[in-house]
Structure formats: structure tokens, C-alpha cells
Design a protein around this nucleic acid. Structure first.
Length: 929
DNA sequence: GCGATCACG
DNA sequence: GACGTACGTGATCGCA
């Protein structure tokens, strides 16, 4: 990063020797594991330097220049004038000697200059650089606590003791030497320094020296007037040792004329080369620091502002064209054809692509070269009279016909941000856009888990540019208007900018896929998804509104009864939907003991708490539980689902998010069809409202225990693999191993516990979590886990390896190469790191499962069509796919589906366990599941 | 806008 | 053995 020429110069000089000796003496004798090389000082040095670099950056006045200064091993000029100087010092400890060159190497690895000069001490170099910066009007900070450097302190020079975190200015110097910095040398000359073997005047210490200097002003005056001193001994010493004192002065006086090994400009602060630094730390086997450094690098990369080349030309929204006639459109289409790679975006009048109407299309053919083609803008109702404006546009059908050849041209690449949306809209207008790339998905592959992948965020991150917010053109809240009613000028700025930014993002991000070894992941797991999901969303699923309405009524009536009962038990009315009021009734009024507090400290009233209270024989908690269940079902499902039926199709069209999870799973919104109730009898009634069209059936196909099977494969656990190969009941098998109970005639409770353990393993088990799940004491849960690890030692190894990988790289990888970044593993707090550890254990399993079902989904439409079937894929629920099939082809379709799903990992990965797929067909989802 | 709660895999 | 605790989601409600 360039530094402004007129910016003030701020130089940090690190006393390297000080760092080394502090590190060496502060740490136990650490050695490199692989060969026993002593590295305690290197380790401490690196940690201190890293901390300094981090702290430094955080400061408002962070330095512009930085260097670490070392003593050179040769004798210095001081030895020439006084051979005994530092002569009494024992040689450096044996295990420190080999570390001196390593420390210099470490300094360079951190991107910092290591300075030394034959014939001079580090302190002289520091003095010389300090002088130069001082004279240039800059500021110097010396990172050291060495008193010999205190003579340099002044207006523009301070010292900083990073270990004790104290600044040393003139006041601190006076405290130490009794004089201001400019007189320190004189005091030192008098009192000498046993550490460096500087003789000084025998019998005179700091106190007396300061007294004398303060009285006489300076050393020469003192020596000249020594005869006046009253105290006999003091007078005699000064007279007798005058030469020795002058010599001492020479020894302690730092040489600020020392030749500089590097010019000041070369010391400009620079970021280290991350690869070189990682290599050095790895070579030294300093893994903890390596992880910390790697984590910081990842974080910095994620926040890195603009790539200079991509952001080269600033975004100018006024320069975009608004295309309103055919000749102009044809010019843009010709430019697009010439470009070969374009970005495009669609504007619509609603959120869901499955129901939204097309309002306009924008194209970008180069950075800054973008246009908007309005197709269905209208005057805002009620405003037509006073602001008619000119809304001449190319008729929608005409424009589509012109654009179709371009959008379907196999030789022209169309880039979109969240392509699924645009493909979904355009396919309803008869355009099958291809080939397509998606900047959102490229970002997801590169940096999933580090940040979101929406266009605004990516633009800020990679282009350093904040696009016009949608709210700015369409308004916000109740006043928000359809894009259809946005005037052409702001619409052009907003829409064309999106295409422009998308193209720029593509140029920045796409090359990284190959460089970072993620091209295959993108091409096989991401890029094919948008058309598949767009088709599923457009298909929607039939939901029986009449059935939902009856359910809703039923729930309402029963909720009313429960509410009345609750009010009677409480003795007064209260809002059952308010956890606060529920808490007041239970814990305040009725005097029950709360057993858990929520994150904010409130007394918890969640289902597990109410269950415990109910089990103690209290009546109200049970009523609350029943009411809550119905309230949830009615509020979140029956009423909301009925409202979500699109009038145009009579079906419910969810929206799948491709880049919202950390693991590669999809998520479903508006409405969420991935959390339709199934666990309770009442809940399943909602599932029964999901039905097939007359003459059709729903087919549900789900992977059986896919994550446990992946654990068996990835962790290479022989017993698990064997059990799956033989088609055994995996939970019963686990139970017999852990509890020593034969599988035959096993009590249901034992199997239930084993099942909970198996789930827990996949989540990165903890005794606390398992205890909560099973309502057993933590100690007992701990015993189960211990036994489990003893029976399946490979699992412990898998977990340790997952954690280690995450800490080292900042991410873990699935079987199919997907990277899941887990920044939490490198957080400050222990708790957060533990969180990251569990995520690191879970992510390869959940992620591989997500990869597998993606592979199946990508192949499915082609395989169904190839089998001559009309069966359509409608929904995905993580390990389950739901299809709608004409009754007559249900059996054939089921077999195609089973085959495609079971073989989905191939040919990329041959699992060492079979994938079992359960397939069922029925008139509604509940019966099919 | 956020926390609590609860629906799913 | 410390840390707070199961992994990953989204919708709704009450309440500031």
C-alpha cells in the first residue's frame, strides 16, 4: 500500500537483542519436536514480534517504518578504547547460540528488516536511525526497556516496553537516573555499569551521580571544579578517576553517526508474504503461532478492500445507458456478442422468482459499460396525473425475442449474481439462459464461512464500492414501491450498476478458483445448481388449503380452551405467548423454582424447563406446553402456508438459498419448507396437507443415516463400516458395544441412548450436551462418551484431526473438496474456540452429505428425462428429495431416483459404506415419508 | 431490531 | 482441565 509522501514519518525500532534475551529467559528450554533443535528463544521472539505487529496496526498512529536491530557479533569500537568492555560476560548459553541466526530469519519472515552493522552495537544503530528521523521531523519509538537507550529519549523519541506495556518518556528517565535524558550519559559515566563492565567512578552510584550533575550542570564542569567538593572521599575519587570517568562516558555514549545498513525508506512497513511466513513457522514447528498468523491472514483477506485492478475504474452510475428503442438494443446485443462474456441482471416486481413479473433487464459488456432495458415500467397509481413522464419502452415480448438468441447462445457466457433468480424468472418467459456463471457461488466456494455473499457485501469487499441500495430507489417499509413504478432514470442507475458490479466481481473472483484449487468444486457442486433449483421453485408443491383451514380452526378452538384453563390455573388472564408473562406467573406468582436462565439472564420457560416442571406434578406447565405446540403449528404453518399459496399456480413456491449455510447445505425461505413438522402426531397433520395433483403421487426418497455412514468412511471406523455393510441396526450395534447388551431383545431405552450418542458424535459431542439430551447426570454422559471412544478409537482420531486441520488452515474440507471456513477455531475466547472445534468436527460430515445430495439433484432431471418420465423434483430437505410423479410411472421413477441418489458420490468418491435410500410413494407427504 | 422459542435435518 | 455446550438452518412472537 502506498504511503503518502507528506505523511509524518513514524519509525519503530525494536531492540532485537532485548527481545531475544527476554524470550530466552522467560521460557522453559523448548526444543523442536522433530529433531530437538532448541527453539525457545525463537518461539518467544516470534510471539513477541507478532504481538507487536498486531498491536501496532491497531493503533491510531501506527508506524510507517519498522525494523528490528541486532548486535553484530564482532568486537565494537568500544573494545578498541577499552578492552575490558563487556569482557567479563560469560559466553551465550550453548542452546541459545544456534538460535541467533534463526531469529534474524524469523524477523525477515515476518516481513521486517533485520539490521546490524559490524563494529557497532544495536544501540548505536538505534541512535543513528533515531537521529535521522528526528532531524526529518518524524517520530521514533524504541521498543526496549534497556536503560542504555534512555539517553535518546526526547521530544520526538520515546521508548516502549512492550512486555510491561509502559511508555518511557522524559519523566520515566528522570525517575530512573535523576536527570533529564540529555544528561543520562553523564550520570552513567559517573556511576558506571557493572553489567557492561563500564568502570565509572568507584563508590559513586546513581543517586550521587545525579546529585553532582544537577549541581554542576555537566560532567566536564564537574571534573574541572572537582577540587571544590567538600566531601573528602568524593573529591578524591573524582580527581583520581577523572580519566576513567571520561573513558566511561565514551563507552556509554551511543554513536549516532554509525553507518546505516539500510536506508530509511527501505524500512517502510509491509505485510509479510503469508506463504513464506507460514513455511518458516511450520519449519520451526511453531504451530500455535502458525495458526494464529494464518487466521489473521484469512481475516484480513476477507476484509481486504478493493483489488486495485478490478476497481481501477470507479463505478459511475450516470454513465449507464437506458435502452428504449430497438436500434439501440441491437447495438448492445452486438456489443455483447463481441464481448463474449457479459453480466446480466433482471428486475422484477416481487421477491420470489417463481411468481415475480419481469420489469427490466440490464447488461454489462465491460467494466463501466452497462445498460438497462426497461420493459414494464408504469406510472405509479395515483401519481399519473401530476408526473406522467416519458415511459416509452420496447415492448416486453419484442425485447425478449431479441435477447433470447444472446441469452441462449452457447458461445456467450452470461454472468449473474445469484443466477438462480434470473434463470427462474426468464424461464417463465420462455428463455433458457445458458451458459451461466454465478459470482455469488464463486465467492461461496472461495470464502464460504468467512462472510456473506450478497452483491453489496462482495462489492464492498472486493471492489471497495457500495452499490446504490434498493431502498434508495424503491423506498422502504410501507412506502416501498414495486420496481415497476420506479422512474427510468434511477432504475437505470440501480439496475445497470448491478450488472456492472457483477461483471467486475467476476473478473476479480473467477481467476482465484483455479489458483486456489477450487475450480472442480465450483464446476461440479455449484455451477450446475441454479437451473435445477429454479425449476424446482417454479414447479412448487400443491398444498390443500381446505385441509389447512380446517386444521387452523381446530387448533384455534383447542387453543382457546387451553388458554382459558391456563388463566384459571393462574387465577387471572395473561398472555401465554409472552415468555416474560409466563415467567412472572410461574416463578413470581406461583413460586416455582426456575432451573435455567436464558442468555440474557431471564428465567427460562422453554419446553425442556416446562417438561421438568410438569413432571413434578404442576398443572400449568403442561397446559402451556400444549398451547405452545398448537400456537406454533397454527402461526408458523397452517395460517402461513395457506397464505403462501400463489394465486397464479395454486401451489407453494419456496425459495432455496444456495449460499447461506457454512456447510454447503441449502436453506429454504418464504416459506421455509425444510422444517415442516413431522415429529408429533399433530404436526404430521400439516404434512398431510402437502399433496400430489390428481392422478399423481408424491415420492419421498431419503438417505438413511447418511452422516453416520460418512463418519464411518471418513473416520475409517472398521466396526461401523462392517455394521453398515451387513445392514445392521446401527444404533443397536452401538448400544451393544457401549453398554455390553446383546442386540437381541435390547430394551428400547438402551437403544435410544445409543442413538443420542451417535447423533452427538456427529455434532462434536460433549458430556453436557449428551446429558441434556438424555436428561441424565453429566457424569453418566461422560462415562458413555469415554466408553464409546474406547470401543471406537478411530473416532477420537478423526475428531482430533478435524480440529487440528481447522486450526492450522482456518478451514476443513469435505470428501468432495468443498472448503468450510471456521474462523471461530482461532477466536480469543476459549468458549468460541470450543464452538469452532465442534463445527470443525461436524462440517466435513454435514458438508459431504450436502455435496452428495447436490450431485444427485444435478443429475436427476436428466436421468428422469432419459428414462422417458414426466416425474418432477419438487423439494429438498437436506437428506430427502420429494418428487411429483404420474401414478402410472411412480414405480419406475422410484427406481431411477433410488439409483441416482445411491450412486451420487461416484465417480468422484467411492464410499467404503453402502448408501441406502428409502423411497416411498403416496398421495401426501406424510404417507410418503 | 433482537431475544426467546421451536419447527426441521 | 478450562470454556459453556451439542452441528446446521428460518419463522414467529413479544417487547423495547
Amino acid at each position: 500500500m502506498a504511503c503518502m509522501s507528506d505523511a509524518p514519518l513514524r519509525l519503530y525500532l525494536v531492540d532485537g537483542s532485548g527481545f531475544i534475551f527476554r524470550a530466552f529467559h522467560a521460557l522453559p528450554p523448548l526444543t523442536r519436536k522433530s529433531d530437538g533443535l532448541p527453539i525457545g528463544a525463537v518461539s518467544g521472539f516470534c510471539n513477541m514480534l507478532w504481538k507487536l505487529l498486531v498491536d501496532m496496526k491497531a493503533q491510531p498512529d501506527s508506524p510507517t517504518h519498522l525494523a528490528v536491530v541486532f548486535d553484530h557479533s564482532e568486537k565494537t569500537f568500544r573494545n578498541k578504547i577499552y578492552p575490558e568492555y563487556k569482557a567479563h560476560r560469560p559466553p551465550a548459553p550453548e542452546d541459545l547460540v544456534p538460535q541467533f541466526p534463526l531469529v534474524r530469519e524469523a524477523t525477515r519472515a515476518f516481513g521486517v528488516h533485520a539490521l546490524e552493522q559490524p563494529g557497532f552495537e544495536a544501540d548505536d544503530l538505534i541512535a543513528a536511525y533515531a537521529r535521522q528521523v528526528r532531524e526529518a521531523g518524524g517520530q521514533v519509538t524504541i521498543i526496549s526497556s534497556d536503560k542504555d537507550l534512555m539517553q535518546l529519549v526526547g521530544d520526538r523519541v520515546t521508548m516502549l516496553d512492550t512486555m510491561k506495556n509502559v511508555r518511557i518518556g522524559p519523566d520515566q528517565v528522570v525517575e530512573k537516573f535523576g536527570v533529564l535524558p540529555d544528561k543520562v550519559v553523564e550520570v552513567q559515566a559517573l556511576c558506571g555499569d557493572p553489567v557492561d563492565n563500564v568502570p565509572g567512578a568507584p563508590g559513586i552510584g546513581v543517586k550521587t551521580a545525579a546529585l553532582l550533575i544537577n549541581e554542576y550542570g555537566d560532567l566536564e564542569t564537574l571534573l574541572a571544579r572537582a577540587g571544590e567538593i567538600r566531601q573528602d572521599k568524593r573529591r578524591q575519587i573524582l580527581l583520581e578517576f577523572a580519566d576513567q570517568i571520561r573513558l566511561s562516558r565514551q563507552l556509554v555514549q551511543l554513536d549516532d553517526q554509525a553507518p546505516l545498513p539500510s536506508a530509511l525508506e527501505e524500512l517502510a512497513v509491509a505485510d509479510p508474504d503469508p506463504d513464506a511466513l507460514a513455511a518458516f513457522l511450520q519449519e520451526m514447528e511453531l504451530n500455535t503461532l502458525g495458526r494464529r498468523v494464518a487466521g489473521a491472514h484469512l481475516a484480513a483477506k476477507a476484509q481486504a478492500p478493493a483489488d486495485q485492478t478490478a476497481a481501477a475504474e470507479p463505478v459511475d452510475v450516470a454513465a449507464y445507458a437506458c435502452v428504449r428503442d430497438l436500434p439501440t438494443l441491437d447495438v448492445w446485443i452486438a456489443r455483447a456478442q463481441a464481448a463474449g462474456v457479459i453480466a446480466f441482471d433482471t428486475e422484477t416486481d416481487a421477491l420470489g422468482s417463481a411468481t415475480a413479473g419481469l420489469v427490466g433487464v440490464s447488461l454489462a459488456v465491460g467494466p463501466g459499460e452497462a445498460c438497462y432495458i426497461p420493459l414494464a415500467h408504469e406510472p405509479e397509481p395515483g401519481l399519473a396525473l401530476d408526473a406522467p413522464g416519458d415511459l416509452t419502452q420496447i415492448p416486453l415480448a419484442t425485447a425478449i425475442d431479441r435477447l433470447r438468441p444472446l441469452l441462449e447462445d452457447p458461445s456467450i457466457l452470461k454472468v449473474a449474481q445469484n443466477a438462480k433468480y434470473d434463470l427462474g424468472v426468464l424461464s417463465r418467459y420462455g428463455v433458457q439462459v445458458s451458459p451461466v456463471e454465478d459470482t455469488m457461488l464463486i465467492s461461496y466456494v472461495l470464502e464460504g464461512g468467512l462472510h456473506g455473499h450478497g452483491m453489496d457485501e462482495l462489492s464492498r469487499l472486493h471492489l471497495g464500492h457500495s452499490p446504490i441500495p434498493f431502498k434508495q430507489v424503491a423506498g422502504t417499509g410501507k412506502a416501498q414501491k414495486s420496481f415497476r413504478h420506479v422512474a427510468l432514470e434511477p432504475a437505470t442507475a440501480y439496475a445497470a450498476e448491478d450488472a456492472d458490479v457483477t461483471l467486475r466481481l467476476y473478473r476479480v473472483l473467477r481467476p482465484r478458483l483455479r489458483k486456489e484449487g477450487l475450480l472442480t468444486v465450483y464446476e461440479t457442486l455449484e455451477r450446475p445448481m441454479p437451473p435445477v433449483l429454479a425449476a424446482m421453485e417454479n414447479a412448487g408443491v400443491r398444498v390443500d388449503p381446505e385441509r389447512l383451514r380446517r386444521l387452523s380452526n381446530d387448533f384455534s378452538v383447542r387453543m382457546g380452551e387451553l388458554e382459558a384453563e391456563a388463566h384459571r390455573l393462574a387465577g387471572h388472564p395473561f398472555n401465554l405467548g409472552s415468555p416474560k408473562q409466563v415467567g412472572e406467573v410461574l416463578y413470581g406468582q406461583m413460586g416455582l423454582q426456575s432451573r435455567r436462565t436464558t442468555a440474557t439472564g431471564a428465567q427460562g420457560t422453554d419446553a425442556s424447563v416446562l417438561e421438568e416442571l410438569a413432571a413434578e406434578g404442576h398443572a400449568l406447565p403442561r397446559v402451556l406446553l400444549d398451547w405452545r405446540q398448537l400456537s406454533k403449528l397454527k402461526g408458523t404453518y397452517t395460517d402461513a402456508l395457506a397464505a403462501a399459496i400463489a394465486p397464479a399456480t395454486g401451489r407453494v413456491h419456496t425459495s432455496y438459498a444456495l449460499a447461506s449455510t457454512t456447510t454447503g447445505r441449502l436453506s429454504s425461505t418464504d416459506p421455509n419448507l425444510q422444517n415442516i413438522p413431522v415429529r408429533t402426531e399433530e404436526g404430521r397433520k400439516i404434512r398431510q396437507a402437502f399433496v400430489a395433483e390428481p392422478g399423481n403421487v408424491l415420492i419421498s426418497a431419503d438417505y438413511s443415516q447418511i452422516e453416520l455412514r460418512l463418519l464411518a468412511h471418513v473416520g475409517d471406523i472398521p466396526q461401523l463400516k462392517d455394521a453398515f455393510a451387513r445392514g445392521l441396526d446401527i444404533h443397536a450395534m452401538t448400544a451393544s458395544e457401549v453398554f455390553g447388551v446383546p442386540i437381541e431383545g435390547m430394551p428400547a431405552e438402551i437403544r435410544r441412548r445409543a442413538k443420542a450418542i451417535n447423533f452427538g458424535i456427529v455434532y462434536g459431542i460433549s458430556a453436557f450436551g449428551l446429558a441434556a439430551q438424555l436428561s441424565i447426570p453429566r457424569e453418566e454422559a461422560g462415562d458413555y462418551i469415554r466408553t464409546y471412544f474406547e470401543r471406537f478409537p478411530g473416532i477420537r482420531a478423526y475428531m482430533d484431526q478435524a480440529k487440528e486441520t481447522a486450526r492450522r488452515q482456518g478451514y476443513v474440507t469435505t470428501l468432495f473438496g468443498r472448503r468450510v471456513h471456521i474462523p471461530a477455531v482461532q477466536a480469543r475466547s476459549q468458549a468460541e474456540r470450543a464452538f469452532g472445534d465442534r463445527a470443525a468436527i461436524n462440517a466435513p460430515l454435514q458438508g459431504a452429505s450436502a455435496d452428495i445430495i447436490r450431485r444427485a439433484m444435478i443429475r436427476m432431471p436428466g436421468e428422469l428425462a432419459a428414462a422417458g418420465l414426466k416425474t418432477r423434483m419438487l423439494l429438498q430437505v437436506h437428506d430427502e428429495l420429494i418428487f411429483e410423479a404420474p401414478e402410472a410411472e411412480a414405480a419406475t421413477a422410484s427406481e431411477v431416483i433410488r439409483r441416482v441418489m445411491a450412486a451420487a458420490p461416484l465417480p468422484a468418491v467411492a464410499l467404503s459404506v453402502p448408501l441406502v435410500v428409502d423411497v416411498r410413494a403416496a398421495a401426501n407427504w406424510d404417507d410418503a415419508h
